[in-house]
């Protein structure tokens, strides 16, 4: 099968296989780019209609070419590097932030056997890789040699690290239920029912912390437009700015996939092919993120911390303990 990607890594190394891998990654990148454009358009359109305005509607029919125009504009813009910037770090920071978001797709289970890497610790890999983005945000903020980005970068570091913990804790409940940290294995385990129902507490903790990881409203403190102008990417322009945006939107998609995989049965669903189901579930998540942006105000940094450490972490841990106890009890009965 063309999409039998799993075998590729374990297959003996040949140049053809390497080329094949390269092609597949390229295809994935193109898919991601198309998604980002669609998400940009979708966000502006949905946000527009929420706010009783039509959104972009001048470029092409219904404004569908707006993201293309945006990308062209960003590509042709001057790449300004502040005089005070640490040039090397400044240049590499958006790449550090974007690449992990793309790496997460390696473990996304599209359908049985359709996934790049059938990693045994897929969930762990996902959370570990997303953690790297924090470094990109901090170094981007620091290297700009400007004050607002510095504040944004520091806020980003504090927020992302704080929310990493409840995120992992809430995922552990699912891992415990499925008995595996393999993404495909977790989906298989949801054959009968979604983990959303038994793991409702975990889902709440997961959803909130994953929104915080995405740096979006109401957790957009590192960007916090009205407070620190644009946060860590204040000084970025042109295509480096586009990379930041790319990373942000890719994360929404990746987190949507993670959410669908962990709690909503991944590829399971009637009638439609598995990958479409996963896509639909992920897109509902993306829509929720956009809807949230149109509704909620921003949180404050101190309440954000209190919320993470005093509410979400205990919630996720309680969920974990309950899951473990119930699982032990069931195992004891049978």
């Amino acid at each position: 099968m063309l999409l039998n990607l799993t075998g590729l890594l374990t297959a003996p190394f040949t140049w053809l296989n390497l080329l094949w891998m390269f092609v597949e990654v390229l295809v994935m990148l193109v898919i991601i780019l198309i998604y980002v454009m669609a998400a940009l358009y979708g966000e502006r359109k949905i946000l527009g209609h929420i706010q009783l305005r039509p959104g972009p509607n001048r470029t092409g029919p219904g404004g569908v070419l707006q993201p293309v125009a945006d990308v062209i504009k960003l590509l042709f813009k001057e790449d300004v590097i502040p005089a005070e910037a640490d040039v090397a770090v400044f240049k590499i920071a958006p790449v550090i932030a974007f690449v992990p978001s793309f790496m997460t797709f390696a473990v996304a289970p599209w359908a049985p056997n359709v996934l790049f890497t059938d990693l045994n610790v897929g969930v762990l890999y996902f959370t570990a890789v997303t953690g790297i983005t924090t470094i990109g945000i901090v170094s981007g903020g620091w290297s700009s040699g400007s004050k607002y980005p510095l504040l944004g970068g520091m806020r980003g570091a504090a927020q992302l690290i704080s929310y990493e913990l409840p995120l992992v804790m809430s995922i552990l409940g699912v891992v415990l239920m499925a008995g595996t940290a393999n993404m495909a294995g977790i989906v298989e385990a949801q054959q009968k029912w979604w983990f959303f129902f038994p793991q409702i507490l975990g889902f709440v903790a997961f959803f909130i912390s994953v929104s915080a990881e995405m740096n979006r409203t109401p957790f957009d403190l590192p960007e916090g437009e009205s407070e620190i102008v644009a946060g860590y990417h204040t000084e970025y322009s042109g295509f480096r700015m586009a990379l930041w945006m790319l990373g942000e939107y890719t994360y929404i998609f990746a987190d949507g996939l993670l959410c669908a995989t962990l709690f909503f049965g991944g590829w399971h669903g009637p009638w439609l092919p598995g990958w479409l189901w996963l896509l639909i579930k992920a897109m509902i998540f993306v829509f929720l993120a956009i809807w949230t942006r149109g509704t909620l105000p921003r949180m404050r940094s101190d309440t954000l911390m209190v919320f993470a450490w005093k509410f979400l972490l205990p919630l996720a841990m309680a969920n974990l303990i309950i899951t473990a106890l119930v699982k032990a009890a069931i195992a004891g009965w049978f």
């Binding site: 209609h49 929420i50 706010q51 009783l52 305005r53 039509p54 809807w291 909620l296």
Partner: peptide, 17 residues
């Protein structure tokens, strides 16, 4: 708040083109 914004999503836009 979600109900309010969700309802607006299906209302007519007010922009003058």
């Amino acid at each position: 708040g979600y109900a309010y914004t969700g309802k607006r999503l299906f209302e007519k836009t007010v922009t003058i083109q």
